[in-house]
Amino acid sequence: MTPSAYTPAPGRRFGVGDRVRVKAAHPPGHRRTPAYIRGKVGAIERVCGMFPNPEELAYGFDGEPKHVLYRVRFSQTEVWAQYEGKADDCIELEVYEHWLEPA
């Protein structure tokens, strides 16, 4: 089988272009959702696939069930209140489905 950057993600909740909000939650523990992006609204740029949950892997568990990972694009002016660059500058991050809600 040809290796791929992506894995299949059947039954996913969001598609490319969907507007999503990152949950503004602050649970303790190992998280891959940087604090600066929590609560912000962006759009799905691509679907990366299904990956073992890093929040479980970090503590020696197997990371099952796997979670869908999305690439989400945010406008920089949405992310930083004081952003001084151009209006069309953006930032992209990888966010797991359980951190996203429809916006």
């Binding site: 950057a5 891959r32 959702t33 940087p34 990366c48 990956f51 890093p54 990972l69 690439r71 920089q76 660059g85 151009k86 069309d88 500058d89 953006c90 930032i91 992209e92 991050l93 990888e94 966010v95 797991y96």
Partner: peptide
């Protein structure tokens, strides 16, 4: 030119 920052924060 617009700048696009990529945070390599998970699996890619």
């Amino acid at each position: 030119v617009a700048i696009r920052v990529h945070d390599s924060n998970a699996d890619m």
